[in-house]
Design a protein around this nucleic acid. Structure first.
Length: 549
RNA sequence: GGGCCUGUAGCUCAGCUAGGUAGAGCAUCUGACUUUUAAUCAGGUGGUCAAGGGUUCGAAUCCCUUCAGGCCCGCCA
């Protein structure tokens, strides 16, 4: 067994005494399987065995802009929630918004006037845009929207309200009374010199509104005196929102208050001597509670940033990721690998691979045919639906194909129209259309900012600069009279193009390439019949005439 | 300085708990498909499992060392 100081080892080797993992053979026997379970099921099993009404906690500190990793945390929590739900348990996922955290500094994206708010709780700082209740609300709202679209089913809890309601009062009191012990624990866990003036609780100055330090000796529940740097002396009531616990003390206090059974958190907290280690001792020795099953996860890195953004020097933000990744695929992206594995979020061609893989898992789920190595991924697909797997095989439009179609159409109606030419769209139900619409929006966002040029095309105004052989010109000449007065529809054009190429010396394959060359300057492109049919006949005629000279 | 995670095919990753002939998908190549072309199907190529040592009849898997990448160590996930 690893030692207690390795909370970030593989989750299935976690050493927390209360969570000794059952033998896999036992789990497999239980499920009648011989393979290895998905990690979310492993955690779910632990929780279901230990709690009647398991509670999973997760959260965010919305002091600044959201990043992709925050989504990983939420999705990790939700996947465990739905896995526990699948075991028939009454399970709850709470989402704690750390709205009472102080603003640590004036970030670059904030106007200079926000300098005055540094050190104040973000629930009491005005909204930068004026449309939200406060600073915290402003930054967390897009994220809450994302949770909604990702299908994360959680109860939103604002930390500043918990303080207002006095929910932390008991823990604050215990932390203050056992302050010396707290300092000793922090010293032992972090290995750093104990600070005798360490304050587990910081009151908010009623005059300047900033967090400050308390006067220890005069503390008598529930009143704490403080002397603020601004010169003001006052009293804080720990049963009201007059101050907050420091992070190392606040986290375990939340475990105690909610009886948290499991919680995903970034590996920063999981480091030896980090806040999970100290929290584990504080919740037991100070608050008389129990620590949750830890689900440490690795960070998400960004990769393959599109050229357009790279040249502008702007990175992929969490909102970009939400906007360019269909929600079900983003869920899947985080569930297909173990939490301790870092993920390269690929905003380039990897996006297409991921979408294709998701669709493939969907087919295996409904139609079978997968092999052993797919099993974990199929379960990830299932979990990505949060227990709402479609009743039957949904309509699938290959993602790469959609990338072409979106570029040919002006809007979503156009996408449907183009797809209808080759796909029986009438059998699509409301959910199919909804998903298709969402995917089309994502594709468009992706094309606009992140897609590599190789997948983009546009119809050149004039003949592109390409070498044209005699054979190709002969082919164009043969096409001109046929295209001049034929029916202008995809099938007819497709037939003409194919037949003419076959009859001409150029042959089928080269014929297609020649046409793509003069239309979009590449040797491949969208399915040619419908592609040409979507253009104006005179335009096509002129192009052929010019190119054949 | 201390610690964690990762390293398996060109790419993304399974496989490691319980040692037993190296696996998928994508990409690539080949061949089919007489409405054919970025939407189908079949097959093939491709790995010194980061490197070295140890334990073992047998190691991608367990142990040790090294290298590389990422990250944490009183609040960025």
């Amino acid at each position: 067994m690893p030692s207690e100081s390795e909370p970030c080892s593989r989750i299935n080797r976690l050493s927390a005494a209360a969570f000794a993992r059952p033998k896999t053979s036992f789990i497999n026997a239980l499920y009648g399987r011989t393979d290895i379970m998905h990690w979310a099921d492993v955690v779910a099993k632990e929780l279901a065995d230990k709690y009647d009404q398991p509670l999973i906690a997760t959260g965010i500190s919305p002091t600044g802009i959201i990043h992709v990793g925050s989504l990983r945390e939420a999705i990790t929590g939700e996947s465990v929630r739905s896995a526990v739900e699948g075991l028939g348990k009454d399970v709850r996922l709470i989402y704690l918004i750390d709205s009472f955290d102080p603003l640590r500094k004036r970030y670059d994206f904030l106007p200079e006037s926000f300098e005055q708010y540094v050190g104040m709780p973000i629930s009491r700082i005005p909204c930068p845009c004026g449309k939200h209740m406060n600073y915290a609300h402003h930054f967390v709202q897009p994220f809450l929207d994302a949770l909604e679209s990702l299908g994360v089913k959680c109860d939103i809890i604002w930390t500043h309200e918990l303080y207002d309601q006095g929910r932390f009062a008991e823990c604050i009191d215990m932390a203050m009374r056992k302050r010396k012990e707290v300092i000793r624990i922090l010293h032992e866990v972090t290995g750093k010199a104990g600070d005798p003036n360490y304050a587990p609780y910081n009151p908010v100055c009623e005059k300047c509104g900033r967090f400050t330090s308390p006067v220890f000796d005069t503390y008598e529940y529930p009143i704490m005196e403080y002397r603020c740097n601004c010169g003001h002396c006052g009293h804080a009531d720990v049963t009201k929102g007059d101050g907050k616990l420091t992070w190392r003390l606040e986290w375990p206090a939340k475990w105690k208050i909610f009886g948290t059974g499991a919680e995903p958190f970034g590996k920063d907290h999981a480091a030896a001597g980090g806040s999970y280690d100290s929290g584990k001792r504080i919740v037991r020795e100070i608050y008389d509670g129990v620590e949750p099953y830890p689900i440490p996860y690795e960070f998400v890195q960004l990769k393959g940033v599109g050229q357009m953004h790279k040249s502008l020097g702007s990175p992929v933000t969490g909102l970009d990721a939400i906007n360019m990744t269909p929600p079900e695929i983003l869920n899947y992206l985080f569930l297909r690998v173990n939490p301790e594995r870092h993920i390269d979020y690929d905003s380039g061609l990897g996006m297409l691979d991921m979408a294709d893989e998701y669709d493939r898992m969907e087919r295996i789920y409904f139609e079978g045919g997968g092999n052993g190595t797919d099993e974990n991924s199929v379960r990830a697909y299932e979990l990505a639906q949060h227990n709402h797997v479609p009743g039957g095989m949904p309509l699938q439009v290959p993602y790469r194909h959609l990338v072409n179609v979106v570029q040919m159409a002006d809007d979503f109606e156009g996408v449907i129209e183009i797809l209808s030419r080759t796909e029986e769209m009438s059998k699509a139900n409301e959910e199919d259309i909804g998903r298709l619409r969402r995917r089309s929006e994502c594709v468009r966002y992706w094309l606009n900012g992140f897609a590599p040029d190789s997948v983009k095309f546009y119809i050149a105004d004039t003949v592109p600069c390409v070498e044209l052989s005699m054979v190709e010109k002969v082919y164009f000449q043969a096409l001109i009279p046929k295209v001049m007065d034929c029916n202008w529809d995809a099938d007819t054009i497709g037939g003409i193009v194919a037949d003419t190429a076959k009859e001409s010396p150029i042959g089928s394959k080269k014929g297609y390439q020649a046409l793509y060359k003069i239309l979009i300057g590449k040797t491949s492109g969208p399915r040619l019949g419908s592609f040409i049919a979507s253009m104006d006949r005179n335009f096509v005629m002129n192009r052929l005439i010019q190119a054949s000279q």
